[in-house]
Design a protein around this nucleic acid. Sequence first.
DNA 1: TTGAAAGCGCTAACAG
DNA 2: CTGTTAGCGCTTTCAA
Lengths: 337, 337
Amino acid sequence: MDPTQGPPRPTSPTIYDVAKACGVAPSTVSRAFSRPGRVNAETAERIRKVAAELGYRTNPLARGLPTGKTSLLALIVADVTNPFFFQIIRGAEQVARKAGYTMLVADVEESMETEREALDRVIPLVEGIVLATSRLSDSSIRVAAKQRPTVVLNRVMTDIPSVVTDNARGMRRAVEHLVELGHTTIMYVAGPEASWVDGMRWRSLREATYELELRPRRIGPFPPTVDGGLAAARAFGDSPTSAVIVYNDLMAIGMMRGLTEMGTRIPEDVSVVGFDNIFGSDFCTPPLTTVAAPLHNLGAFAIKTLLGRLGTDTPRTLRPALLPSQLIVRGSTARRH
Amino acid sequence: MDPTQGPPRPTSPTIYDVAKACGVAPSTVSRAFSRPGRVNAETAERIRKVAAELGYRTNPLARGLPTGKTSLLALIVADVTNPFFFQIIRGAEQVARKAGYTMLVADVEESMETEREALDRVIPLVEGIVLATSRLSDSSIRVAAKQRPTVVLNRVMTDIPSVVTDNARGMRRAVEHLVELGHTTIMYVAGPEASWVDGMRWRSLREATYELELRPRRIGPFPPTVDGGLAAARAFGDSPTSAVIVYNDLMAIGMMRGLTEMGTRIPEDVSVVGFDNIFGSDFCTPPLTTVAAPLHNLGAFAIKTLLGRLGTDTPRTLRPALLPSQLIVRGSTARRH
DNA sequence: TTGAAAGCGCTAACAG
DNA sequence: CTGTTAGCGCTTTCAA
C-alpha cells in the first residue's frame, strides 16, 4: 500500500496502538469495546482509559466489514425540498441517533429512476432502510426489502412493515367539522393520481360523507404543489361548492391564493381544509384549517419499527401502523353563509 | 465468524465469485472496476459481463478500508427543520451524486453538543465534510478540518475554505430599494448574537446607510424564528420606524404577523424586508420582499469546493467564495406615507 | 479470561 | 497485462 495514496490525514490510533500501550492482545481491546462482559473488569477499565488518552475511536467501517453491522440506516425521501418531510427527517434522526445509528438521507427528487439508484448506492452501506413516500413499484420495494430490512412510510404494503397516518379518522374529523359549520356539499381536490395517499383520502371522504348523508364531489388530479392548487382554483370556478377539502396543504395554499385572486373570499365564500399541517400552513392567509399529520412521530416510529426488525428475520406484525392525525381549526373554515 | 450472526440476507457476490466464473485472478476483477485502463479491454469486457449477470456490486465499505475512499461525504446542518436548508441540501446532494458520492446528512438541532457528536460519528466514515451554519467554535472546526477536508458554509474562516452569500451587496440593494421608496430611517431587527451572519448583516447595513446618509437603528437580538419575530414586533412598538430590515425571513414573517395583530398595516405603515427567500416567504401576507440567498447554489458550490479539496492537501484559495444574492421585491415594501 | 490466527471484500505493491 | 501476496482495522473462532 502506497502511503502517499491513502488519506494524507493523521491516521487515527487503532486497536493495535491501544493494545501495545496496554500490553494486551489486540483481540482483548476489541472485546473490551464490542462485548465488555467478556473481559476482566480491571483490564477493560485500563484499556478504556488508555484508549481515551490516545483518542482511539473504533472505526465503524472496519467493524462493518466482518460483521455487516455498519451502524448506518438509510432514509430515502421523495423530496427533501418538501416541508412535509422536515419533521419526519428530524424524528427519524433523533431515534436513530439515540440507538447509536447514523442516518443517511437520500433525496430522490420525486424520480423513480433516482430512487432506484439511491437504493443501489445505499443498500450495501446500511443495515436497514426507510422508504418515505416511495415512488417505486411494490415489486421494486420487495427486491430491496429482500436485501435489507425495510420499512415503508406513507404507503401500505401487505408484506412489508408500513407506517401511515390514519387518514380515515382525519378525514372523518374534517368532514364533521365542515358539517357542524353547515356545509352540505364537499368538494375533494385530488392530488396525483398515482398517489396511494390520494386514493386513500378520497375513499375516506366518500365513506365519511356517505355516513353523514352528504354529497361528495371531486376535481383533479392536480400536481401536489402550490401551482397545482392554483390550477385547481381555476377548475373549481366551473362548479363551486361552499367547502373544499384539498389533497394537501401545499395545494390548499395555492388554491386559496388562486381563489382570492379570482375574487372569492375565504372563508366567507368557500371553506378550505388542507392535509398535513406543514410549515407555512399557519402563516398563509387565511391560516389554514388542516388535518395535521403526526410528522415527527411518523419518522420516529418508522425508525423504531426498523430497529425492531433489525435482529429478527421474520417480520413482526404486518398490520400497518396507523398514527393518529389531528384536526387543527384555523381561519380558512367558517359557517356557511 | 459465526455465520448466524452476520446479516441473514442473501450475501451478495464478491470479486472472488466473479473471478472464479471468469477464470481470472481476483485482483484482475478488482482492477477491471477500479482502474479499467490497466486491464485488457476484452478481459475487462468479459468480467463486466459476468459481473452483471451475477449481480455483482463492489462493496464500498470493503473498498474504503484499504483506500480510505468511502465515497461518502457529510453535510452537517444546524437544523433540518429550517426551510433555509432545504435547497442547500438538494444542491449539495445533486453535486455529490453526480460525482459518485453519497451524502450523509446530519441534523444537529442547533446544538453545539449534538454537532460535535455528529462530527465524531461521521468523521471516520466520510472523505470530507461540509459544515452548514456550524455552531462550533473556530478551533473545534479546525480540529475536524485536520482530520478530513472541510468546507464551511455560511461562515467565514481564514484558514478553511468558506462559502457564503454576498450579504454586503444584498444589504446594499435592500437599503437602496428602501431609499428609493422614500424611507430615511431603517431599523435592523437583529438575530442571534452569536451568529456570524447577523454580525455581517448589521455591519453591512451600517456601511450602506453611512454611504447613503441614512440613520440606521437596531433592536434585538431575537431568536431567528417566527416567535422571535413576534417578540420583535412588540419591542418595535416602542420606537417605530417606517422601514425595517429583519435578520431573516422566518423572523420577518413573525414580525409581520405581530405587527398586523397590533394594528400596524404592512406595507402602508411599515415596510418590511427579510433575508434568504425561504419557502413560504411568497405566500405569507403580505408576500415578503426579501434578499434571496442562492440557496441551491450555496449547497452545490460547497460540495464542489470540497470535491476540489479532496485530492490536494493544501487548500487552494482561502478567500471565501461570495455567492451573489438577489433582491426580490414583493408586497411588504411600499413608498413611505 | 486471554492470546493466536484466520478472514470480512477489496486494493496495491511486486514480480513475472 | 496478469497473478501472487500482503494488508486495511476489526471480530471471532479456537486453544490455552
